[in-house]
Design a protein around this nucleic acid. Sequence first.
DNA 1: GGGGTAATGGGAACTGTTCGCAACAACGTG
DNA 2: CACGTTGTTGCGAACAGTTCCCATTACCCC
Lengths: 157, 157
Amino acid sequence: MSVESRQSSAPARVDEVLARVREAGGRATTSRRILLERLFAEGSHKTAEELAHEVQRIAPDVHLSTIYRNLEELERLGVVTHAHLGHGPATYHLATETHGHLSCESCGATLEAPLGLFDGLAEAARAAFGFEIDPRHFAVLGHCAACRAREAGAEAD
Amino acid sequence: MSVESRQSSAPARVDEVLARVREAGGRATTSRRILLERLFAEGSHKTAEELAHEVQRIAPDVHLSTIYRNLEELERLGVVTHAHLGHGPATYHLATETHGHLSCESCGATLEAPLGLFDGLAEAARAAFGFEIDPRHFAVLGHCAACRAREAGAEAD
DNA sequence: GGGGTAATGGGAACTGTTCGCAACAACGTG
DNA sequence: CACGTTGTTGCGAACAGTTCCCATTACCCC
Ligand SMILES: [Mn+2]
Ligand SMILES: [Mn+2]
Ligand SMILES: [Zn+2]
Ligand SMILES: [Zn+2]
């Protein structure tokens, strides 16, 4: 491995996205670049405010509204999507990671669910109503295994 | 039919609920009564603001915050629930009408889905993650039959 | 009818997000 | 490597939906 070898594919992909931004008539801004680096970094389901804080550790003057505007733009380009996991702020992640969400109403934990999990519901909704579900944008709420165990334990006290 | 016969069971039920409110140490307020009458009236999935307008046609001074407080209280008593059908305000309906929601991201139309529709997903989530879904609080989004037809038509132009 | 207190009107506060605008900075051109 | 165009930014105000606070009201039990 050479000194120039990349630790991950993220930096290369950031440049790819910025190239695409320019193709679309946009500009490769520093705030844009840093935001993209954070989006390609590990950990997903980050809120705009969390992303703002991460970006501000590198460029303190980047304003929250700039984060929102850039997320909006990146979403138009198909690079980013957001999901609503319950009450509270939306969370953003790369559009390449495509999955549904199961979100616990008790503890807020979120599970990424492969889209296949929703096949049964998809078929039922299509058959009954001609309705085509999209389980990616809004989470399905409920109660996670841990919380169910805890609640069952407290009940049988 | 006597002159005193009720047009529907709603008024009787309003009084039943108000009795329950009093049992719980609450009071049978006029704003409370009118709100309940509106909730028992036809049409569901009303937002707090819509309910406020309906109530204000009878009692103009009832404040929106009073509506919210009463809905909150009635929810604690198990009379009312709310659901989130997409972006925008929550919608409230009687807790007796228990169903899930399918909400169209294109036109905003909402379908009331019998809970059985979610059995496939419920089983899959339980099997894969030990997660127990509750499809009543948040709608499952997607695209309704009408919008799908329209979009397919425009595409095949 | 009077007293205790739940509930109200009114408005401010709050969260999450969008908007308007003047100053700035990216980048194609010369 | 100026320079002008124009996309982008920082900033604050505005916005939507909801909750909170507080002095005043009105329910309801005696
Ligand atoms: Mn959304
Ligand atoms: Mn809710
Ligand atoms: Zn949980
Ligand atoms: Zn539709």
